[in-house]
Design a protein around this nucleic acid. Structure first.
Lengths: 248, 248
DNA sequence: CGCTGTATTGACATGCCTCAACAAGTGTGG
DNA sequence: CCACACTTGTTGAGGCATGTCAATACAGCG
């Protein structure tokens, strides 16, 4: 089993058991990992799009740059995530992608995904489920940006990351490493860096979030969820079985 | 050809030609249309989710209600759209759906979509493309909400609708029917209804958008795009062919 | 013809932004 | 191992876009 080695396989398994056949197909998505340094831009908006990539190590983010000089960060990618699914149907990149830390990525052509559609019903369903979930998370972020104040936005984002990290690195700790500068947080949450700083100290003063450097501690998870209006209905545990299990 | 009758088939054909086989499969998604009155709630958040539906006539929207009493509208659905794709992988509804006008909808079980995965590679690819595009639109909305001021938000939304309507009802006119109250617009754009009203009059004063009742006229499309920071890179014309055409 | 929901307008409040100065950490080369 | 530059975070003062509340106008509909 190459199962332990591949974070993509691990990722997919959350949704449904995989046959050896499927694992072999997936393995092709992780050919030839290439190391990348922090700050590297994997691609920019409007570049030609012929490939996806999977993230093996390190964090990355995707972003859009606006005509008014601001930048909106759309997505934080963690190890095991597939980057670029969004553009599946487009010939141009619609968002840039940049590495946050040193890491490793594996590029693979669009073609491979289409092959998966052709060859594996299970993987197709899982991919659809992943896309569906991604959209749900995106929706939640949209609500967060549109309807909440700075305090809630920040709290909510921290909780989202906490939950996503839990899913893969399940340790029962009450803290997480969040290697994001306040500028990045600002660009994520539609705030100014200055206000992110103020908001952090406010949350700190109220004993909801303690942070030093990139380490964030959540002393009272429930209190923070309350504050953020956080709702974990979209955690993976609430997802349904993808299909009645008649074939693998 | 049942092509002219079915708006779902028409919708799918934008992405790729369909075989008769595929059309038959799709037809099952449009069994038994049921009429629904304006204001009808098709389902609410947290309802059990066993089915999708396609919209045959009329407009609908999906929404989330927040703990703080506000509501965020996520999506406006037009005839031909599939409603509920978002929840494909979930067992609960994550958003409510309500009709804006009288219309007609067709429910069909999740099962049917899974059958499509099993039986038609072409339709699977198209569905993936639709999901991909939906996500791109959602992303654009997110940017709009996070980064733009009220003027731009409203202008941008009008342009998005203008473009979507063009795609199906291609008439060269410079105006569109937008049967949305200012309260709905406010809930879409993360503004207060009061401010929507002010923004409309501001756009009117500047000669960018003329509106009376639900009829909206755009005298200078380019000027409005400029104002809104609107970017049509994600129009359907920029989408790539889904696969090398070896089978239907 | 009045009733009910929808839109407009004004006065005032406020959350977040901007600018600017300063502090604290981080890395680099001598 | 220190000195310096650079990046990142903190704090304060003042401004502005948008929100809230409330009163009025308007439109569609029975």
């Amino acid at each position: 089993m190459s199962s332990e080695k591949s974070c993509v396989v691990r990722h997919f398994r959350y949704y449904h058991p995989l046959s050896d056949e499927d694992i072999k197909l997936l393995a092709r998505l992780e050919d030839s990992a290439t190391p990348v340094r922090a700050g590297t831009v994997l691609w920019e908006e409007r570049d030609e799009a012929h490939e996806f990539c999977t993230l093996k190590h390190g964090w990355a983010f995707s972003y859009r740059e606006l005509e008014n000089g601001t930048r909106q960060i759309l997505e934080i990618y963690l190890p095991g995530d597939i980057i670029g699914l969004r553009e599946f149907a487009f010939s141009q990149r619609l968002a840039g992608v940049q590495m946050i830390e040193d890491g490793e990525v594996c590029f693979f052509p669009h073609r491979n995904l289409v092959d998966i559609f052709r060859q594996s019903f299970t993987l197709t369903s899982i991919l659809f489920a992943i896309a569906s979930r991604q959209q749900v998370l995106l929706t939640e972020r949209l609500v967060n940006l549109a309807r909440r104040n700075a305090r809630q936005k920040l709290a909510h984002f921290i909780l989202e990351m906490f939950q996503r990290l839990r899913q893969t690195e399940a340790n029962g700790s009450d803290s997480l490493r969040l290697p994001l500068s306040q500028e990045i947080l600002a660009d994520l949450l539609g705030l100014s860096p200055v206000h992110v700083s103020r908001t952090f100290t406010a949350l700190n003063d109220d004993g909801l979030v303690f942070r030093e450097r990139y380490q964030v501690k959540i002393p009272d998870l429930e209190a923070l969820k309350q504050e953020a209006g956080f709702d974990d209905r979209y955690v993976i545990e609430n997802m349904r079985p993808l299909f009645d299990d008649k074939e693998s």
